[in-house]
Simulated assay, not measured.
Amino acid sequence: MERVMWIFGAFAAAVAVVYGVWGEWSEPVGLVGLTLGALLGFMIAGYLSITRRKLEGVPPEDDPLGEISDIAGDYGFFSPHSWWPLWLAASCAVMFLGLAIGWWLVALGAFFVIPALVGWVFEYWKGPHAL
């Protein structure tokens, strides 16, 4: 995946240059979009490169001779009982619906988004489930 993102970033950068030269640098919207696409590809490729360097050796899922039991174990911490993502998603849905209906609904959704986001971020900060 890392290689694909490097290729995508290079392709988008090359197309941005060709687009700019062909349009005599007069049309900025396409140029900005292609440049942002190139930066996005390079950003993801860079992140994947840094993450790959932190891992030692070949991961078990990439080993062609690997067994299923090689990848047994913990994969991280997952919250099995959190209701905050539901409230955050509902609040965001109200906000985005407000873009179509009216700005008052965006304000109402933002009023609920902020406590839902804070609650989700600080869910394990204090209380019985603190980490």
Rank of each mutant, 00 (worst) to 15 (best):
W83V: 15
M1Q: 07
A100Q: 07
P60D: 01
F78M: 06
G41D: 08
L86W: 15
R53T: 10
D62M: 11
A130Y: 12
R3S: 10
L31D: 03
W104L: 05
L39M: 13
E123K: 14
W87G: 13
G46D: 13
E24W: 11
P59C: 05
F96W: 09
V4Q: 10
I101M: 12
V118K: 15
V118F: 12
G30H: 02
S91A: 14
H129P: 00
W83T: 14
F11V: 15
G9A: 11
A100P: 00
M5E: 06
I50W: 15
A130N: 06
V106Y: 04
F78N: 04
G127V: 09
G76C: 01
V17D: 02
K54D: 15
V58T: 04
G57R: 02
I50N: 14
W120Y: 15
L31Y: 05
Y47R: 12
V94E: 05
I114E: 09
V106F: 05
W25N: 04
F11G: 13
A45Q: 01
P115S: 12
P64E: 07
T51I: 08
Y75T: 12
W87S: 10
G66I: 00
W125R: 15
G119A: 12
A45V: 06
Y19T: 04
L36N: 01
L34Y: 00
F11I: 03
L39D: 01
V118M: 10
G33C: 01
A16Q: 01
W25H: 11
D62G: 03
P59L: 09
A116G: 12
W87R: 09
A13G: 10
L99A: 08
L55K: 08
P85A: 13
V58P: 02
E61D: 06
G66S: 00
S91H: 05
F112L: 11
W125N: 12
I68S: 08
L88H: 10
T51M: 04
M95V: 13
E61M: 05
A90F: 09
W87K: 03
S49V: 07
A107M: 10
D63I: 01
L65I: 00
F42H: 01
G98Y: 08
A72H: 13
A38M: 04
P128N: 08
T35D: 02
P115V: 09
I44Y: 07
L131F: 11
C92H: 08
M1T: 12
G127Y: 13
A130S: 14
I7F: 06
D63C: 09
M1N: 08
V121P: 05
L31A: 09
I50T: 13
V94T: 08
A107Y: 10
L40E: 05
L131P: 12
M5G: 06
V32P: 01
V94F: 04
I50V: 13
W84C: 07
L105I: 13
A110D: 05
E67C: 00
V106T: 06
P64K: 02
V15C: 03
K54N: 14
L48K: 10
H81G: 11
W83N: 11
W125F: 07
R52Q: 10
G127T: 04
T51P: 05
L108C: 08
A93Y: 07
L39P: 00
G66A: 15
F42C: 03
V58K: 03
W104Y: 10
G46F: 11
W87D: 07
A38L: 02
E67P: 00
V29R: 07
G30P: 00
A100S: 08
F112N: 06
L39F: 02
F96S: 06
D70L: 04
A116L: 09
